[in-house]
């Protein structure tokens, strides 16, 4: 039988107190590794810190100067635009590919069960390996892709050094790497769609597409939303592929915000300014996490 509040009150306060001791070391570590640095990051963002000039470290004369200068910084504005392009393209492509492959692999045949595992490979590869693999595949003189297209009479030039294609080439490689995540989430959700409504719809004469559109899709939509949010957050952190494949270039066409911060801090040594942008990124990520938390709380455990 169910007793109210059964979640956690066995032998009660004392046990709770004992449990806290298991949490304390982790909390101390988390605090010193995350909360502490974030606080420090925020302080740094209020200073014009430059490691070559120690006097700048605790200089709070113009605390909001870094934040103000973002508005007049076209390169920052550009990085946001690039970020938005990359994020939207990543979310849309990964969801479409992931869901499409999931629908293909959903039926339980031997080949598809094996394929479900095989498809996961790109996702677990070290990003650096994905980077060099696609860098090679986009390099004209060694890439079999270029050879194939040349052979069928549709040769094309290097994509990564062409400003109008570079970003999309990176998005393509990123989609290859990450689509299995959306696939896994979709597969898990598809498996939980009850058979009843699907059979009822078939008996009512619905076509395959109608069954998908009217029965399956509404059921798995919340999972897709959560998956989309995860992809969005990951796209904000994009780095290794950009570093390997384009280094933010050509020019600044692939310089997303994350990459811009990296440049400002570790190339130009503008620590204060970089920190200010990082603080804004933290806030954005916090809001997205909060959203995920709210959604998953509502559809408890639908995705994990």
């Amino acid at each position: 039988m169910v007793y109210p509040g059964a979640v956690a009150q066995p032998w009660t306060e004392r046990r709770d107190r004992e449990l806290v001791w298991g949490l304390v070391p982790a909390l101390i570590m988390l605090a010193s590794l995350t909360a502490g640095p974030i606080a420090y990051l925020w302080l740094t963002s209020l200073t014009p810190l430059n490691l070559a000039q120690p006097a700048t470290q605790w200089n709070f004369d113009q605390p909001l100067a870094n934040y103000a200068s973002m508005f007049g910084d076209p390169r920052f504005a550009n990085s946001v635009v690039v970020q938005v392009k990359l994020s939207i393209a990543s979310v849309v492509l990964q969801l479409l590919c992931g869901l499409g492959v999931a629908l293909l692999l959903h039926p339980n045949t031997k080949i598809r069960t094996v394929a479900r595992s095989g498809m996961l490979v790109p996702m677990v590869l070290p990003p650096i390996v994905v980077g060099i693999t696609w860098l090679a595949l986009f390099t004209v003189d060694i890439s079999p892709i270029h050879r194939l297209f040349a052979w069928i009479g549709l040769p094309f030039g290097p994509l990564l050094t062409n400003p109008s294609t570079a970003l999309w080439a990176v998005v393509f490689a990123g989609t290859w790497q990450h689509f299995p995540f959306a696939m896994l989430m979709s597969l898990a959700a598809l498996q939980m769609v009850p058979e009843g409504p699907i059979e009822a719809a078939r008996i009512d004469g619905a076509s395959r597409f109608q069954v998908f559109w009217h029965v399956r899709l509404p059921f798995i939509a919340p999972t897709l939303v959560v998956a989309g949010l995860f992809i969005l957050i990951d796209s904000v952190k994009a780095f290794p592929l950009l570093y390997i494949m384009t280094d933010g270039g050509p020019g600044e066409v692939t310089e997303v915000t994350n990459y811009y911060v990296y440049r400002q801090v570790f190339t130009f040594s503008l620590w204060g300014y970089g920190s200010a942008i990082a603080v804004l990124m933290m806030i954005a990520v916090f809001l997205l996490s909060y959203l995920i938390d709210r959604i998953t709380r509502r559809n408890d455990g639908a995705w994990a």
């Binding site: 007793y3 009150q9 032998w11 306060e13």
Partner: peptide, 9 residues
């Protein structure tokens, strides 16, 4: 019963 057992306060 759980109070007799001591599992609930």
């Amino acid at each position: 019963l759980r109070m007799i057992a001591g599992l609930e306060s």
